[in-house]
Design a protein around this nucleic acid. Structure first.
Lengths: 335, 335
DNA sequence: ACCCTGTAATAATTCGAATTAGCATCTTGA
DNA sequence: TCAAGATGCTAATTCGAATTATTACAGGGT
C-alpha cells in the first residue's frame, strides 16, 4: 500500500526543509517570510509532479478549517422512502456548499450502541467537520444542549426551541403561513375551523398550531384542535374548513369525501400544512402552502458560514409560499 | 466560546498524567499496562462529569486513518433530475458505509477553474478520505489514469477499461444480460434483431453492444446496429425485435407504435437495456433487465474496504436481473 | 543491605503541517 | 571596511491523543 506523501518527503526531493515546503504551499509572502523565486519554483514543481496534497487532518489539528461541512441526520438519507423529504434540503445544502467551496461529510456512521443514531456517541466524529447542519423533524434535546454547551458550530434546519441557550437555525415560518391560510378561509366565510394533527412534539408542529390559535383568536372565529378526526366527526361538529398538519391526512379526508359522494370544497374545505412524514397520494391537489425546503438548505449553509466566521447565532424563518389547490372554497354553512 | 477540553485538562483535574487518561479512556488492559482500580475510577469520574470526548482529529492523525470514504461524481447528486439515477447507488453506498463504520464525504466542491468538475483540481481534497468511490456514467480518462498512477485507493462503480493499469471496479454484467435477452428473443422465433443506441463511448454502452454481437453470432441470426432508428425504418428493414440501449428510446418506440395502431409485441418486440440518462415515461412496461444499482453501491464500498486493507485491485461484474415486461412476444415474421 | 519482581504511573515520542524565532549570508551606505 | 539592513532559509515548537520506554516504589527473599 503506497504510503501517503508528507511535506517531509517533498522537502527531501526539493532539497529544502519541511518548513519551506509549508511556506511555499501556503503562498506566504508576509513580512518576515521570504522564499527565493527559484526555490519556490523548484518546490512547486515537485508538488505538481507528485500531486501532493496536504493531509487535512494534520492541517486541521493545527489551525481549524477543513472546508468540510457535516450533515447530520437521525436516519439514512438515501432510501427512497425518505428521499422525498430530504431531497430538496440536501439539494440546497449541496448547492450552497459547492458555492462556498466546501465538501459535505455525511455522518452515516453515527450509530450509538443502542442502534439509534446519536450525535454524541462513544466516538463522536462531529468535530471532523468545521461545522454541521442538522437535518430532521425532531432532534434529540440532549444532543442539542450539548452542541450548544460545547460551542460546536452548527445550524439546525428547522426552528428549534432554546436548549440551554439559543439554537442557531433556519426554519420555515409555519405560524405565519398558517395564519395566512386561516385568513383566506375566513375571507371565504368560514367561521368554524378545525386543526387536525399533533400540534405538539416537534417545534414545526407546535408552530403551526400556535399560528392557528393566534389567527382564530384575532379573527374571532371558532377554532378547535384535535389530534385525529374522521370526516363524519368533523361535519357533525359543524366544521366547514379543516387544516390538516399532515398532507396525507388531508388527502385521506378528500378521498373519504369522494367515496361518500361529498364535494370538496363544496361541503368541506381542506387545507394542508405541508408536513410530510408519510407518503401522500399525488392525485389530490390540496390547497395549502409549500415549505421552501431547498431554500432552507441553502440558507442553513450560509448561516453556518456566518457562525464559523463570526461566532454568531443566526436565527431565521423563511416564508412559505401559498399553493393554490382545488380544496378551498366558500363556506356553505347555514347560519 | 468555551474552549474544548483536552486530555491534559482531564489529567490535571484527576491529578494524573495525560498518558494515564488516554490509557483509561481506551480501556487498555494489555500486559505492560496497569492502572489501579482507584485511579481508573477517579479519571472516569472526571470524564463523566465534564462530558469530555476525544478530539477525533488528533486521534486520526495518530491512527493514519480517517474512517472517511469519499464519493466523487461529475455532477451534483441531489438535484431531482439526477436523483433517479444516483439514488439507488448512493443508497447502497450509504448502507455499506454505515456497516463499515465510515462516514461519507461528498466531493461537491471539486470544481476546476473551467467550471467542470475534475477529481484533480487546484486543491484536490481527494486524499482527505481513506479511499474513494467514483460514480458516473463516464469518467475522465486522465483523472482515472492519475488515480491509478498515484495509487490512490478507489473503486469505480461501473466497469472501466484499463487506464495505465487495471481499474478497480464493481460493474454490471451488461454483455451477459444482453446475451440473455437475445437468447430469449431467438427462442421466441426472432431472427432479425436490431440494436439501437450509441454502443460506444462509455464502457457500459460498449459492453451492451459487445454482448449483442456475441449473441447474434453465436445464435446465427441477423443483428444490426444503428445509433438511432424510427419505427418505420425498423419495420421496413424486416426487424422483429429491437433492443434499445436507452429506456426512453424504447418507450418512444412503443408510444409511436400505439399511435399508428400497431401492436407491441404483436408487430414488434421491444427490449430495453436499462440505460437511463433521460427520464422515461412510466406507463410503458418494457421487457428488459434491471441494473442492480443498489447492490453495486454496496459492493463498491466492500471492494474499497478490501483495497484499503490489502491493496488489491478488485474487479467484479454483478448480474442483471431479467424484467418480465409486456413488450416481448413471438416473432410474427412471415418467412 | 542487596537484588529481584511486580505494580503503577509518567516522560518522551509519534503522527503531519503551520508558525515563529533566529541563524547565516549577502548588500549597501558612510 | 564595518555596521546596518535585507534576504533566504531552517530549527524548533505547537496542536491532541496514542503508544512505548522508562522510572519510582513497595515488598519479599537471601
Amino acid at each position: 500500500m503506497a504510503k501517503r506523501l508528507t511535506q517531509q518527503d517533498i522537502a527531501r526531493m526539493a532539497g529544502v526543509s519541511q518548513a519551506t515546503v509549508s511556506l511555499v504551499l501556503n503562498n506566504r509572502t508576509d513580512s518576515g517570510v521570504r522564499i527565493a523565486e527559484e526555490t519556490r519554483a523548484r518546490v512547486l514543481e515537485v508538488i505538481r509532479r507528485t500531486g501532493y496534497v496536504a493531509n487535512p487532518i494534520a492541517r486541521r489539528l493545527h489551525d481549524q478549517r477543513n472546508r468540510i461541512l457535516g450533515v447530520f441526520t437521525y436516519e439514512a438519507v438515501f432510501p427512497s422512502t425518505r428521499a422525498d423529504f430530504y431531497q430538496p434540503f440536501l439539494e440546497g445544502i449541496e448547492e450552497q456548499a459547492e458555492e462556498a467551496g466546501c465538501d459535505l461529510l455525511l455522518f452515516t456512521s453515527a450509530k450509538a450502541t443502542s442502534g439509534k443514531r446519536r450525535i454524541f456517541s462513544d466516538d463522536s466524529r462531529i468535530r471532523l467537520a468545521d461545522g454541521c447542519v442538522l437535518l430532521g423533524r425532531s432532534i434529540d434535546r440532549d444532543d442539542l444542549a450539548q452542541l450548544v454547551k460545547e460551542a460546536i458550530p452548527f445550524v439546525s434546519v428547522g426552528r428549534r426551541d432554546d436548549a440551554g441557550g439559543p439554537v442557531p437555525h433556519v426554519g420555515a415560518d409555519y405560524a405565519a403561513a398558517v395564519r395566512d391560510l386561516v385568513g383566506r378561509a375566513v375571507a371565504l366565510g368560514h367561521r368554524e375551523l378545525a386543526y387536525v394533527g399533533a400540534g405538539t412534539g416537534a417545534e414545526s408542529s407546535a408552530d403551526r398550531l400556535r399560528g392557528f390559535k393566534q389567527a382564530v383568536a384575532a379573527q374571532r372565529v371558532k377554532g378547535t384542535h384535535v389530534q385525529f378526526a374522521g370526516l363524519g366527526q368533523l361535519l357533525d361538529a359543524g366544521v366547514t374548513c379543516v387544516l390538516s398538519e399532515e398532507v396525507s391526512d388531508g388527502a385521506a379526508l378528500v378521498l373519504a369525501a369522494r367515496e361518500r359522494g361529498l364535494s370538496i370544497p363544496g361541503d368541506l374545505s381542506v387545507l394542508t400544512l405541508g408536513a410530510a412524514t408519510r407518503p401522500a397520494p399525488d392525485d389530490v391537489r390540496l390547497t395549502g402552502f409549500r415549505i421552501p425546503r431547498r431554500e432552507m438548505g441553502r440558507r442553513a449553509v450560509q448561516a453556518l458560514t456566518e457562525v464559523l466566521a463570526h461566532g454568531t447565532t443566526p436565527q431565521e424563518l423563511l416564508a412559505c409560499e401559498f399553493v393554490e389547490g382545488t380544496t378551498l372554497g366558500h363556506s356553505t354553512a347555514q347560519r
